[in-house]
Design a protein around this nucleic acid. Structure first.
Lengths: 116, 116
DNA sequence: AGCGGTACTTACCAAACGGAAAGTCGAATA
DNA sequence: TATTCGACTTTCCGTTTGGTAAGTACCGCT
């Protein structure tokens, strides 16, 4: 015989799902890392590039561009020579930090669980 | 003149970065959604498929397979006819829920911020 | 004998992603 | 005059991703 279909005991269907909404902003390689490193204040391109080993300039500038387009961070060119560019989180960007923090915390727990 | 390189005021470099570690498990379309829907207890393939509109069976079974391989969930075939399969979170899977919850919370805030 | 339900799989495909390497540009410095 | 710096951009390319559509296997039911 067949099995009854159970209703979900958890939540409404993802029509305009908050989970999906938020994940859109965290999508793409290095995205959460950028937000993490900007939490402490504005930071320059080459600084971030060094903060996050392994990322290529191309991918990275694309990432920053998308983050700026999405309103997560702002780009500020300074009149130095050679010109330097500072990135900082917007208010919207700061709203994401609780999520990032939680992910980091879980990351720590996972590492403790794995290595021992 | 040139600008001084500032040191990061935030954290250690991502060598075995907890953020990256955790994000690996949340990577891929629908991954956080699956975990969200399994929080409430075991659930079957077709139930999850209906929970999460828009996902195709192919992508979905691949996702579940990877999640099982990663130790996030377990697959349990039941001796019904036709056979039904139940998926449930492992202990490791449950460790991820704080992160998912935080993301959902932020998602809610973002939606409030967007629509008004 | 044929149908329906469940849980997939397979084949195919296009777009997106992400990495390496090299080039650009203007001002300042050696 | 040549080089360096900072912040990119461009080109090229292989991999991965995710989607559609259709097929499969098993068993019980009508």
């Amino acid at each position: 015989m067949a099995v009854k279909r159970r209703r979900s005991s958890v939540s409404p269907p993802p029509q305009g799902c908050p989970l999906t909404t938020c994940m859109q902003f965290l999508k793409g390689a290095w995205t959460p890392n950028v937000i993490w490193y900007l939490r402490g204040g504005p930071r320059r391109f080459s600084e971030l590039l060094a903060d996050i080993p392994g990322v290529s300039p191309k991918v990275f500038s694309a990432r920053l561009k998308r983050l700026e387009r999405d309103g997560i961070l702002t780009r500020h060119v300074m009149p130095t020579s050679p010109p330097t560019v500072e990135y900082s989180l917007t208010d919207l960007g700061h709203e994401l930090t609780p999520a990032i923090d939680a992910i980091v915390q879980v990351g720590h727990k996972l590492k403790r669980r794995w290595i021992p």
